[in-house]
Lab assay of single mutants.
Amino acid sequence: VTTYKLVINGKTLKGETTTKAVDAETAEKAFKQYANDNGVDAVWTYDDATKTFTVTEMV
């Protein structure tokens, strides 16, 4: 189990959160659900070296 981080650069929601998951795909599903629940529709990137997902909402 690995800890993954999500950085949110949204128009109305900004911040960071983490989740523990067995792999990046599982973490991504959890983070996308979190973003969807909070109304963030954005572009996703992932950095495997830092285990960090970044979501940037387009203006």
Rank of each mutant, 00 (worst) to 15 (best):
L6C: 09
Y34N: 03
N9Y: 13
N38A: 13
E25L: 10
Y4P: 03
T12L: 11
T3F: 05
E57R: 05
G15L: 15
T12H: 13
A35L: 15
T12K: 11
E16R: 06
A35T: 13
E28A: 12
T12W: 14
F31C: 01
K51L: 06
D47F: 02
T50R: 04
T45A: 07
E28F: 15
E25W: 09
E57W: 11
V7N: 03
T54C: 06
G10N: 06
A30P: 01
T52N: 01
L13C: 15
T52P: 00
G39W: 14
E16L: 11
T19G: 02
D48F: 05
D23N: 11
T3Y: 06
A42H: 08
K32R: 14
A24G: 03
A27E: 00
A27W: 02
K5L: 07
E25C: 12
K20C: 12
V40T: 06
T19I: 15
W44Q: 00
V7H: 04
A49H: 07
T52D: 00
T26P: 01
G15M: 15
G10I: 15
A21F: 05
D48M: 06
F31M: 02
D23H: 03
V7Q: 04
M58L: 12
V55I: 13
T52Y: 00
T50M: 04
E28W: 14
K32E: 03
K14I: 11
K20G: 04
T17K: 12
A35F: 15
T18F: 14
G15P: 05
D48H: 07
M58H: 10
A42Q: 08
E16N: 07
T18C: 13
T18I: 08
A24W: 14
L13E: 07
L13V: 11
D48V: 06
D48R: 04
G15C: 15
T26R: 05
D47M: 02
T12M: 10
D48A: 11
A27I: 02
V22P: 13
W44C: 01
V59P: 13
V43R: 07
A21C: 06
V40F: 14
T45D: 08
V55S: 03
Q33H: 07
Y34C: 14
L13F: 15
K14N: 10
A27M: 01
A21S: 04
V43H: 10
G39M: 13
V59E: 13
Q33K: 13
D47S: 04
T19V: 14
A27Y: 01
T19P: 01
Y46S: 00
Y4M: 01
A24C: 14
T52Q: 03
E57Y: 13
A21P: 01
N36D: 09
D23R: 03
V22E: 08
K20R: 12
T12Y: 14
D23Y: 03
D37M: 15
E16Q: 10
T45N: 07
T18Y: 14
T50S: 08
I8C: 13
Y4G: 03
E28V: 05
A49D: 10
K32V: 05
T26K: 05
Y46R: 00
Y46A: 00
G15Q: 13
V55Y: 05
T50G: 02
K29P: 01
K29S: 06
F31N: 00
A49V: 11
M58Q: 11
Y4Q: 02
G10M: 15
T12Q: 08
K29H: 07
T45V: 09
F53T: 00
T54H: 07
I8N: 01
A30C: 12
T18H: 07
K14S: 10
D47P: 00
A49N: 09
N9L: 13
Q33D: 06
G15E: 12
T3R: 04
K20L: 14
T56E: 07
F53E: 00
V55C: 11
N38Q: 13
E28H: 11
T54D: 01
K32W: 05
D47L: 02
E28K: 12
L6E: 01
A24T: 07
K32M: 08
T19W: 08
K20D: 13
E25F: 10
N38F: 15
K5V: 08
N38R: 13
N9I: 14
A21E: 03
V22W: 08
T17V: 15
T3C: 13
Q33C: 06
T2Y: 14
L6Y: 01
K51S: 03
A49P: 05
T18Q: 08
K29F: 06
E57Q: 08
T17E: 04
K5I: 10
E57F: 14
V7K: 05
Y4W: 03
F53S: 00
V55M: 12
E16G: 08
K14G: 07
T56N: 08
K51C: 03
K29G: 04
K5G: 01
L13P: 05
A21G: 02
Y4N: 02
L13K: 09
A42T: 08
F31I: 02
A27D: 00
Y46E: 00
A30K: 11
W44I: 04
N9F: 13
V1L: 15
A49E: 11
D41I: 10
Y46I: 01
V1C: 15
F53A: 00
M58A: 10
V7A: 02
K32G: 02
T12S: 10
L13S: 08
V59C: 12
G39A: 07
A49G: 07
N36F: 14
E57M: 11
N36K: 14
G15Y: 15
T26W: 05
V55N: 01
F53G: 00
V40Q: 06
T2E: 12
Y34Q: 04
T18S: 09
T2R: 08
Q33S: 08
W44D: 00
V1D: 09
T54R: 04
K11Y: 08
F53H: 00
V55A: 15
T19F: 14
T45G: 04
A21T: 03
A24S: 07
K32N: 03
E25H: 09
V1Y: 14
K11A: 11
A35E: 02
N9S: 09
E57N: 06
T50W: 02
V7R: 04
D23G: 02
V40M: 12
W44T: 01
T56R: 04
T26E: 12
K20E: 14
K5E: 02
W44R: 00
G39Y: 12
G39D: 07
K20A: 09
A24L: 09
L6D: 02
I8D: 01
N38I: 15
A35V: 15
T17D: 03
V55T: 04
T19Y: 13
A42D: 05
A21H: 02
Y46C: 00
A42N: 07
L13I: 12
N38T: 12
V7I: 14
T3E: 13
K11E: 08
E28T: 03
D37E: 12
A35Y: 15
K11M: 11
A30D: 05
K51Q: 06
E25N: 08
A30T: 14
A42P: 07
T17C: 15
T56L: 06
K11C: 14
T52C: 01
M58E: 11
N9K: 10
T50L: 05
V59K: 11
K29D: 04
K51H: 09
N9E: 07
V22L: 10
V7P: 00
G39K: 07
K29I: 10
L13M: 12
Y4A: 02
N38C: 15
T12N: 12
A42C: 12
D37W: 14
L6T: 01
A42F: 15
T19L: 15
D41N: 12
M58C: 13
T54A: 03
N36C: 12
V7F: 05
E28D: 03
T2V: 11
M58G: 10
Y46Q: 00
V43T: 10
K11S: 11
G10R: 07
N36S: 13
N38L: 15
K20F: 11
T2I: 13
D47N: 07
A30W: 15
T45C: 07
M58N: 11
L13Q: 08
W44E: 00
T17I: 15
T56Y: 11
T12F: 13
A27N: 00
K5W: 12
K20S: 12
D41T: 09
T50A: 05
D23I: 02
T2N: 12
T52G: 01
V59R: 09
E28R: 11
T19C: 14
L13Y: 13
Q33L: 11
V7D: 02
G10D: 04
T45M: 07
T18W: 13
K20N: 11
T52V: 04
T12P: 05
D37T: 12
K51A: 03
D47A: 02
